[in-house]
Design a protein around this nucleic acid. Structure first.
Length: 229
DNA sequence: GCGACAG
DNA sequence: ATCTTGTCGC
């Protein structure tokens, strides 16, 4: 099973300043010097759905067999948001619930795919980095929209991509997963490089704009939230 | 000072 | 994130 460093969840931030300080402190723990897994047999998707009140939530981690893209394990937790939504501090909202769900998994996935960003973040420590740092597993972020950075529109074909840069630094990549469909934003979280991350995202997105990991997780947490209501 | 701003 | 109607297309 996954061993999460839950020590990092005990002193939860009260203010945005404290939250940002935690990100700055954990940032050096990231392993960004290795290519990462060339082969991924199991990939996990992480996602959260919110009730209308914006407080109650359901967090899901779903594990897919990358050969069939079918669900082989699911872990869902119902809880409450742990922080107000602030751009750049988004992870503090969902992390406790996601960690709960991760710890209940019996399979240790080869790759974690979060709904959001990794290094494409003002302090280079988005949700995918945080999740990677706490679990030690290879981790990437796939965002539907950009948090920061600029990019040229990638070509129209599936697999076309262009760098997402911020302050002269490449922080991620705008990747076209389907022809003539808006690109997704891929960035590294932990223990994997950008090329490898994009390769896996493409393999996980044979039919739709978003990877199956995200789609299945999204479906399951919405369903759980509806049934918990 | 005026926008932009993951989910 | 979530609220929302119809609409175009396979």
């Amino acid at each position: 099973m996954i061993s999460v460093d839950i020590r990092e969840l005990h002193a939860w931030p009260e203010t945005p300043e404290e939250a940002a300080a935690i990100q700055d402190r954990l940032r050096p723990l990231l392993d960004l010097g290795h290519p990462g897994p060339r082969t991924v047999r199991t990939a996990a998707g992480l996602d959260v759905a919110y009730a209308e009140d914006g407080d109650r939530l359901a967090a899901t981690v779903v594990v897919l067999d990358t050969t069939t893209l079918k669900v082989i394990e699911e872990s869902t937790v119902v809880g409450t948001a742990a922080f107000d939504y602030v751009p750049g501090l988004f992870a503090f909202r969902e992390l406790p619930a996601l960690v709960d769900a991760l710890r209940r998994l019996t399979i240790v996935p080869d790759l974690l795919v979060s709904d959001g960003h990794g290094l494409a973040h003002p302090r280079r420590f988005g949700l995918a980095c945080h999740v990677g740092a706490l679990t030690g597993l290879p981790s990437i972020g796939v965002g539907k929209t950009r948090l920061l950075g600029s990019y040229d529109p990638p070509g129209e074909r599936r697999g076309d991509a262009s760098p997402l840069t911020d302050g002269g630094e490449v922080v991620g990549r705008a990747l076209r997963t389907q022809p003539r469909v808006k690109p997704v934003f891929v960035s590294v979280g932990h223990r994997i490089d950008l090329d490898t991350a994009c390769r896996h995202v493409l393999a996980l997105s044979p039919r739709y704009r978003l990877p199956e990991t995200t789609r299945q997780a999204d479906r399951l947490c919405r369903e759980a939230l509806r049934r918990a209501a």
